[in-house]
Structures are given as C-alpha cells and as structure tokens.
C-alpha cells in the first residue's frame, strides 16, 4: 500500500532579528525597544502660531508612511530608557542611522536661538 506523504502541520517562518546599534550602548536586540512612531512627532507645532489648528491636525493624524527610508522614534524601555531616532528602510529593515533624540532636540533648540 502506498503511504501518503506526511505534511508538516507547523509552518516555520523565517525569523527576522533586528539589531539596533545604540549610540551609547552598542548593538542591542530590538526586543528591548518599543516603536513609538514617526520621528516627525519631535516637531510639535506652536499652539499659538499661524494656522495652528490645521498644523495640529496634520501633526496628530497625517503620516507620510514611505516605502523606503523612514525616520522613526524608538524607546529603549528594557534598557537605559533613552529615546532614539532610527532611520530604517521599511522595505529591507536595514537600519541606516541611529541617533539620540535628545541630541537632535538640543541641536534644534540651539539653532532656533
């Protein structure tokens, strides 16, 4: 009698591990981080500026969501509790750049003065 070929009931997907090179701590597993959204959230509009209502609507709800290079906020919750701006390719998951959000905010503040 011909035996039926057993099918594997478990579908093993390729596991993708992402390593984020923290500027202070070195390479760390992405499981230590929490994704916190588009890095444009750092640019909060002025509440009393011109067209502030429209700007706040865009700030709160509208995202570019590109297929490619994307600047995003990551929080190192299971580490040193730092906020990072990670530039990641959303197609390949390749991380192009990692910066401390603190440094970016301070640079912006100094530039505005």
């Amino acid at each position: 009698m011909k035996k039926a070929k057993a099918t594997n009931p478990i579908c093993i997907r390729e596991l993708r591990i992402m390593i984020i090179k923290h500027p202070l701590l070195g390479p760390r597993d992405s499981s230590e981080f929490v994704y916190k959204g588009d890095a444009s959230l750092l640019d909060r509009p002025k509440w009393n500026g011109q067209k502030s209502e429209k700007k706040f609507y865009e700030y709160g709800y509208l995202r570019k969501n590109p297929a490619g290079s994307h600047r995003e906020l990551w929080y190192h919750e299971q580490g040193d509790r730092s906020w990072l701006v990670v530039t990641r390719n959303t197609i390949s998951h390749e991380i192009e750049k990692v910066e401390l959000a603190r440094d970016i905010a301070r640079k912006k503040k100094a530039k505005a003065k």
Binding site: R28, E32, Q78
Partner: peptide
C-alpha cells in the same frame, strides 16, 4: 552590567 529583558521581564 546591563539592563535587558529576559522572557519579557525587565
């Protein structure tokens, strides 16, 4: 010393 997560626990 490091702070990390093991089995989802800090």
């Amino acid at each position: 010393v490091r702070r990390t997560s093991m089995e989802h626990l800090g």
